[in-house]
Design a protein around this nucleic acid. Sequence first.
DNA 1: TTTAGGG
DNA 2: CCCTAAA
Length: 454
Amino acid sequence: MDHDAHLRKKFANVKHQRVKADETFAPTIEDETLEHLLAEPKNDGVTVDGGLDSNTAQGGGDELELGVLDGLLDEVEEVEDLHAADGLASPCEDFLLEFSFSGKACGLDYGPRGRSHSRNASSESQSPGLSGSSNSAVGISESSSVTIQESECKNESLDKTGTELRGTFRHKKKRKTQVRGSMCPASLDLQTPKQLDDDDDDPLLSSMLVKKYEKNSDEASKAGGSRREKRLRRPTQRYIEEVSDKKSKHHKGERKFTSIDVTGIKDRQLKVRSHAELNSIGPGMLSLVPEEELLNGTKIQVVSETRPRRGRPKKQISIVPPKRNEELLTSESDEDRVIRKRSDTHDRRKHQRMWTISEVTKLVDGISEYGVGRWTDIKRLLFASSAYRTPIDLRDKWRNLLRASSVQKLKKKEVEEKQSHAMRPLPKSLIRRVRELAKIHPYPRERGQKSIGQ
DNA sequence: TTTAGGG
DNA sequence: CCCTAAA
């Protein structure tokens, strides 16, 4: 209860500051996003464990800092993208991540001797894919609980566990702890500051911590008071999310917590992360953005979502806000919205972002200026504001443009046919430019590209 | 880490 | 879009 209030206040603070920072540069910030992020943990995570709280709060801290940085950078849109893409983990993502795993571990832990996981049991029986994961999860949860129980003192146990785990599952990549560290103090006054610097965002560790807390509280109030109810919610919600998620997508044998072993740690993290990502656009996270006007004038409602690129998020905090194409950059905010196709059929293409003409124009501009192959440069200079377009995306788009233009050059009939059907009407000017560029810059291995030249 | 190529 | 190999 106290925590709740405290946390609330903290978040409010964070929010204010962040908004303030951003406002200067972009008045149209979507508070919704933040709102969600704040709302989520407030309802569920605050109850028992310090793990979640501190973590979410930590995320908030990150957000604040990044918000400022972004403000210096340029647009708002990038704010959210950066958070996610950067691996610094938006609070929401972090929370979900924790939540998912802890929920699992918790349910499993209490399963054998408690009745709190009736939902889980049913879930397990329903989807065999889950049951497979449960075994491993049990394994780890058990081992972890042993470790925890051995030491009495909370902090010590936390620390100990932390170090032990760290020693064992050392992360390959070093996280960007500098940034983190600098802002940790801001959110340090929460409980269990140890976790903040100790276990960062390691889902495994955190989950263990969480579980420990839960165990304590549970055993303290054995008869199950209000806490039990709240704790019970965890597996439930997780169950719902997971099942709904899995139902819609027959994930290609992607087992989330199956690989608990040391080697699979990293992998699992990734999976979990993506899972959280999926969830982040769930019912609660849906934020309707204005709309995108397609070329044909049709207006459709789209869903804005941050897609953290796993590849190379690469937060470019360089102080090179491209002055050259500012109009393009700024005009993008209201035009280039995302079209998320929730085609659950194809595992890929999950995150599809329609390329708008302005984007294509920018791309072509960039290519013509910097040359084909300088994707990172183009991205940095012309697509700095759109974090979702990676250099690879640009390259891919260019590839497609080449194909399209060549096709249009070669067979006119087919072109029109295709245009009317699948293909979007690409402005002739653009096509012309693409063609010109295609002539100038050789793009190897592109079907008969050389012969199409004059 | 970035590009190129393939899926 | 995603993944991977090569540079």
